[in-house]
Design a protein around this nucleic acid. Structure first.
Lengths: 161, 161
DNA sequence: ATTCCACTGTACAAGTTGCTCAGTGACCTG
DNA sequence: CAGGTCACTGAGCAACTTGTACAGTGGAAT
């Protein structure tokens, strides 16, 4: 996954102004249109750029409360890549579970959830705990976002390498 | 932030196939082009859609290891909305810190970091701990992603409401 | 009834996309 | 060092999309 300097500039430009087209981008970057197109295609093919999906803000949708929940899972069986994972599926069924990971620690999981209010959060946590296999859940609430989710610095760092 | 059914369908369509243009979208949704345009403008103005940035995959960039770190901060002063936040700024200076939040708990913070390998993770954690004000850091590593970051179910839920 | 508003359908100029092609320079390899 | 490969450039062209405007329709609120 060799990201060169031009790749970096392409990504930065499209991250900063997603609405610019390929032609306009080529003008700004000082390269031919075909080159930008080729880089974009390659970045997409290599999976570096997953797509240009709309960035939805849960807060603007009314889900202003974010919480991080650590789950303790009943260990029925190692859920390696083999069998399906009932807990993950159960969590996926809850819309407010925005993200879920298996983490280090004996049968632990970690997820990010959102809710409309602190009261609503209780409802969501209850739903999470109700998922079959979940033993305990401990949650912390996000009070403020110091660093919003970002990947640009990473791109820059990857370019240097 | 009233999201109606058409808004939901617009978002879903653009989330599923970001490359479709406004005209093609209007055809698929069975509405006039101007309507799609108007909805998109309104959703963007209201902040529901932040933009159409490229989705960068840290793993494809070589950052295959994700970890969640809970920080204990030396409480010099309440870092309310007033004064600047030195710890947040310090963390923002580390490219591998992908996200950081202040959380419930006396002076605690939570952040997501990535690294190239488990060895590299040590380097990143060291950098985090070196940030002035950070007392302790405890981290867990993400082993697998059960539910990748998503917002679509939320959109659907918001439409129902 | 009147006004407001969102939506439709149409129109047109200007711009963009997808594609192709020939030419150039860099780099590796036999 | 000739030959091949590869990425990039710049140009051309048809098909399509965008931005914008405008008149008409129907529902909802006043």
């Amino acid at each position: 996954m060799p990201i060169d300097e031009l790749d970096g500039r392409v990504i930065e430009l499209f991250a900063a102004e997603p609405r610019v087209g390929v032609l306009e981008a080529s003008r700004r970057l000082g390269v031919a249109r075909g080159t930008v197109q080729a880089r974009l295609d390659r970045l997409a093919r290599d999976g570096v750029i997953g797509g240009f999906g709309p960035d939805i803000d849960p807060a603007a949708l009314g889900y202003g409360v974010t919480a991080f929940v650590t789950l303790q899972i009943r260990q029925s069986r190692g859920q390696g890549q083999g069998g399906h994972d009932p807990v993950g599926e159960g969590l996926a069924r809850i819309p407010e579970v925005i993200e879920a990971h298996t983490i280090t620690g004996p049968g632990d999981m970690f997820c990010r959830i959102v809710a409309r209010s602190n009261t609503d959060l209780q409802r969501v946590i209850d739903a999470v705990v109700d998922v079959a296999g979940v033993e305990r859940a401990s949650s912390v609430i996000s009070l403020a976002t110091q660093v919003p989710y970002r990947t640009l610095p990473l791109v820059r760092a990857a370019v240097e390498a």
